[in-house]
Amino acid sequence: MLRSYVRLVLFTAGLLIGVQIPGFISDYGKRVEAHLMEAQQNLRGYSDTAQRFFNGDVQALIQHYRSSDDPVFRTDANNISNLLSRTQMLDREWQALQGPWYTRAWHVLTAADPDIRNETWNGYTWQVLLSPQVIGWGLICALLFSLVIESFVLFIDWVFVGRHHVRPVNRDSR
Rank of each mutant, 00 (worst) to 15 (best):
Q133E: 13
S146I: 01
W121L: 11
I140K: 04
D172N: 10
I140M: 08
L129H: 13
F152R: 00
D157F: 00
D91C: 04
W137H: 02
Y124S: 02
S131A: 04
R117T: 13
I135W: 00
G138R: 03
I156P: 00
L144H: 12
T125K: 13
V166N: 08
W158G: 01
N122Y: 12
P114S: 13
V161K: 15
C141G: 02
R86T: 09
I140S: 03
S151K: 03
R104A: 05
G162N: 04
T120L: 06
A112V: 01
M89G: 12
N122F: 10
H107M: 01
H107P: 01
V148P: 06
D115F: 10
I149R: 04
W126N: 13
N170P: 02
F160Q: 05
A112H: 00
R167G: 07
W106M: 12
V108Y: 02
A112R: 01
E150L: 05
R92L: 06
H164T: 07
I80P: 03
V108W: 00
V169N: 15
A96V: 09
Y102F: 14
R163W: 06
Y102D: 13
I116E: 04
A111K: 14
D115M: 10
T103K: 11
D115I: 10
Y102T: 12
I156V: 06
C141K: 08
T125W: 07
N170F: 07
L147E: 05
S131I: 01
S81C: 09
L143Q: 02
T120W: 11
S146P: 13
W137M: 00
F160K: 08
R104G: 08
Y102P: 03
I116V: 06
R117V: 07
V169C: 09
D91K: 11
A96N: 14
E150C: 02
D172Q: 04
N82A: 14
L129P: 05
H164P: 02
R171Y: 09
P168A: 15
I116A: 00
P168I: 15
A111F: 08
Q98V: 05
L84H: 04
I156S: 03
C141T: 07
S85Y: 08
V134N: 12
C141R: 06
H107S: 05
F155G: 05
V161M: 10
W94H: 14
R163I: 06
P168T: 15
T110C: 08
R86A: 07
D172L: 07
D91V: 11
L139A: 00
N122R: 15
T110F: 12
P100Y: 08
Q95P: 02
A105M: 11
L147C: 09
G162R: 06
Q127F: 12
S85N: 12
V169E: 15
L83E: 06
P100K: 06
V134Q: 08
G138K: 02
L90E: 06
A111L: 10
L97R: 03
A112N: 04
Q98M: 04
I80S: 03
V134T: 14
D157S: 04
